[in-house]
Amino acid sequence: MTAALFFEQLLNGMQFGVTLFLMAAGLTLVFGVMGLINLAHGSLYMIGAFACAAVAAATGSFWLGLVASIVAAAFAGAIIEVSVIRRLYDRDHLDQVLATFALILIISEGCRFVFGSFPLFLDVPAILAGPVILPGGLPYPIYRLSIIVVGGLVALGLYLLIAKTRLGIRIRAGEADREMIAALGVDIRTLYTIVFALGAGLAGFAGAMVGALQSVQVGMGEPVLILAFVVIVIGGIGSIKGALIASILVGVVDTLGRVSLPSMFGLFMDPSAASSIGSSISSMLIYVLMAVVLIFKPEGLVSQNG
């Protein structure tokens, strides 16, 4: 592999990692602060993508679609929190898994009911279409580059929100001791709704950005959800910083593994078998990474208690 190709794959890995981060950030907040396993997080991602595609198709503006994706997903998240999730905080995780799994089915079929079963069209805006030439003569899609930048900005914004604002202090306090913060007069119910809607909005935003690159269809959220769970386990549950580190790590390891393993096996096997075995092993790679991290750091890379 040449240096340029390696660098390009590194960028691809980062971009993949950043989109994972947008999903994982909400998931880890909800899981860390509220102690809730939310399988329907992938459905919020899908809602974002569908809202963006529908609004972009109706108005012709991708940017309005992007705004709509955040609003729609956050709104859906708030409704779900008030109507369903709120009743689940005191239940055990199995009940939460069952209820949020039911939400996946309801939202998926609801989406199909409204939008039909054919994938929707959503393309990157004209200003971000096509490649840009990076230093060193490497062409790289502008849109992917912008995803990396936007993801970085969101990470920074979340850090400032959690570390520097009153809302952030309350979120951290709610994570540490739910009863005490309620006793101090903070409206914990509203706080939870806000956190859930924030996470949902981020997921919807990720869905819209990725939807323009991939395909907007029913069921698009579930594969990402699984990876997002891997990310929050590696990163340490409840930690935004951990989620950022872990998602970049997972993105880079997955991408580089996918590229280099088949050619490594190709050194001592015939190409067809090498490709087949290499791709099978590379798809396990992030789970191997997760296992290794958990052996040495059972609480994840960034532990909340340490």
Binding site: L213, T255, R258, P271
Partner: peptide, 24 residues
């Protein structure tokens, strides 16, 4: 001849890595 023969993960939706390899 074959410039490359690649099997991707079923259900994968990001092909940046493969496209970079195609270019190279």
């Amino acid at each position: 001849d074959l410039a490359g023969e690649v099997y991707t993960k079923l259900g994968a939706t990001d092909y940046a890595a493969e496209i970079a390899q195609i270019r190279a």
